[in-house]
Nucleic acid binder design. Structure first.
Length: 556
RNA sequence: UGGGGGAUCGUUCAAUGGUAGGACAUCGGUUUUUGGUGCCGAGUAUUGGGGUUCGACUCCCCAUCCCCCAGCCA
């Protein structure tokens, strides 16, 4: 299980720092989500990286820090879900911090910067600020308010804090260089006025710090040594460094890596929220969502997600991971841990004509051939059974190993049966099969060397339990949903068949006791789990993943 | 071409001047009371062009392509 950890460029940096005695031999990372949505599998990569470092290095620690600097987008619900998801992934959530706890310290630091003559209050409108920022090719223009006195700036900033101005009326900006080729240096805004209630600080503040100003301070205050973030912040690193240098405080090292992208889905929180708000999905935890809560509900194990993060590695090249890799991770994990059970999704009735009337046998079945410790259970067998409709074919090709007239197959854990008669309704549809069983093949064996290639799953009709089964496919039907034609939105790439609800499924009776969090393999069908909508009188299962199907693939 | 990054099998990660390797995907074989699992095997890559070197994915030069940045979002 504990295979050797694959190194990456970030670990190499840390190893080097450690060998040089940097940071007093400390390693301290952080995972800093903004509580403006649910965590998705892209965040899992960052969580596994940051918390993984803390787990692997004796001296390392990792904080879970909420970057709650924008009250208009953030909610308590998101905070709670994030904690739950990090915990579910298997990481320590003892060290929880909130950026909002540092607002007062940040304010004092801002005053310090003003006193150094390196920040000023700007009265320009948002439009004026945007226009005077210049463009990629042309420098910006300095604000007419750029050279206010230190005293005036301190007074104005205090007035901002005290609510004397409306939203957008004033901002505090760092005084750096309006001609810098790095746009982030063109007098970046440090504070904006937001008369909004913050989920933790309430009405205490009406000015809120911007990311560039706040984030480095948050890291610094917590004594973070390695501040790991995604590629798009590379341009911000010089500013991160600049602020910390002016203040002469503990200065963590920002390191950027490529975020995780998966094909056939999207990773933008904004767009995921849109899917929720526009009811394209049932919620943030819809099993089709790439959120951690979605995967959890769909039946993914936390181990499988962590395994994906290990396998994708950490680098600076941005790319798109094939979702088949994730699917391989769940299958591999679930193959080892899931209980094998029998469930017929699309039932066809079979009558065993030579089976004693009203007889019922309890047959032995192992719970998991991959793990003998999972033991055995018994399954009731009777003369009337459900089998899968697709396991019968009238004019079957040679390579069809399942049932057809005159052919013999094995019923898993039970007997060999041979199909003698096909009963059809007036429309010519097959509605029932009459078969005979061989009593000498109990358990599914015969000692006469007979070769029976096909093995079918089945459920005894009088003992069957009804259930609804939800079959999922990719949320989008194109690899990159963000690539849209003119005038189209990413929602136009939604897969209309991403959810298929199958009702009237027939399950073996042991499934009556299935519980939330159990992992099942419905034999020959796939991996399934109980859905949160399930109730004792109406069982509902989600398909976590299909089994690999070389036969189905070949016949496409 | 303002600045910042990045280019290695189809995808992704490695190889840090010394046989380009793994995983997934694909295709084949084998085993099997799941057409699952397992096992075995195959094909496919250093963006291009120069240079340095006994030897270059790696160092140098010149091209090319891709991504990010002009929120009072993070």
């Amino acid at each position: 299980m504990a295979e050797e950890m694959q190194s990456n460029f970030i670990r190499e940096i840390i190893d080097l720092d450690l060998s040089q005695g940097k940071n007093d031999g400390r390693v301290h990372t952080r995972f800093p989500p903004e509580p403006n949505g649910y965590l998705h599998i892209g965040h899992a990569k960052s969580i596994c990286l940051n918390f993984g470092l803390a787990n692997d290095y004796e001296v390392a620690k990792c904080n879970l820090r909420f970057d709650d600097t924008n009250p208009v987008k953030e909610e308590d619900e998101y905070v709670n879900s994030i904690i739950e998801d990090v915990k579910w992934l298997g990481f320590n959530t003892d060290n929880i911090f909130y950026a909002s706890d540092y607002f007062e310290k940040m304010y004092i630091f801002a005053v310090q910067l003003i006193q150094q003559g390196k920040a000023y209050v700007d009265d320009q409108t948002p439009e004026e600020i945007r226009e005077s920022r210049g463009s990629l090719k042309s420098p910006g223009i300095e604000s007419p308010f750029r050279n206010r006195t230190i005293e005036e700036n301190i007074q104005l900033f205090e007035d901002m804090r005290n609510g004397k101005f409306q939203n957008g009326e004033k901002v505090l900006r760092a005084k750096i260089d309006m001609a810098s080729p790095n746009l982030n240096f063109r007098d970046p805004i440090m504070y904006r006025i937001l008369h909004a209630s913050h989920q933790r600080t309430g009405e205490t503040w009406c000015i809120y710090p911007m990311y560039d100003w706040a984030h480095g301070l948050e890291d610094s205050i917590e004594g973070i040594t390695h501040s790991i973030c995604t590629l798009e912040f590379q341009d911000h690193r010089p500013l991160y460094d600049w602020f910390l240098d002016q203040l002469d405080v503990h200065h963590p090292q920002q390191i950027e890596f490529a975020r995780l992208n998966l094909n056939y889905t999207i990773m933008s929180k904004r767009k995921l929220k849109q899917l929720v708000d526009e009811d394209h999905v049932s919620g943030w935890n819809d099993p089709r969502m790439p959120t951690l809560s979605g995967f959890r509900r769909k039946g993914y194990s936390p181990d499988s997600i962590r395994e994906l993060c290990d396998r994708v590695g950490v680098a600076k090249r941005d790319g798109i991971i094939d979702i088949a890799l994730l699917e391989n991770c769940v299958r591999e994990d679930l193959n080892k841990r899931s209980q094998r059970v029998m469930a017929v999704l699309d039932p066809l009735k079979v009558v065993i004509t030579n089976y004693p009337k009203n007889q019922v046998e309890e047959l032995d079945a192992d719970n998991n051939p991959e793990n003998e410790d999972d033991g055995k259970r018994t399954i009731p067998f009777s003369g009337e059974l459900w089998i899968e409709k697709s396991d019968f074919m009238e004019d079957a090709p040679k390579k069809f190993f399942r049932l057809s007239e005159g052919k013999e197959v094995r019923l898993k854990h039970a007997y060999y049966i041979t199909c003698n008669d096909v009963i059809k309704n007036d429309d010519g549809e097959v509605v029932e099969l009459h078969c005979t069983y061989d009593p000498k093949t109990k358990g599914g064996w015969s000692d006469d060397g007979r070769r029976v290639k096909g093995t079918l799953h089945w459920v005894s009709i009088p003992h069957a339990v009804d259930a609804e089964i939800r079959q999922y496919e990719h949320l989008f039907n194109v690899e990159n949903p963000n690539k849209t034609k003119d005038g189209e939105s990413f929602t136009d790439n939604l897969n209309p068949d991403s959810l298929q609800i199958v009702s009237g499924c027939k399950l073996e009776p042991s499934l009556k006791n299935a519980e939330l969090g159990n992992y099942f393999q419905f034999l020959r069908n796939g991996y399934y789990c109980i859905d949160t909508d399930s109730a004792t009188d109406t069982l509902i299962f989600n398909r976590t993943a299909t089994l690999r199907d070389t036969w189905g693939k070949k016949n496409k």
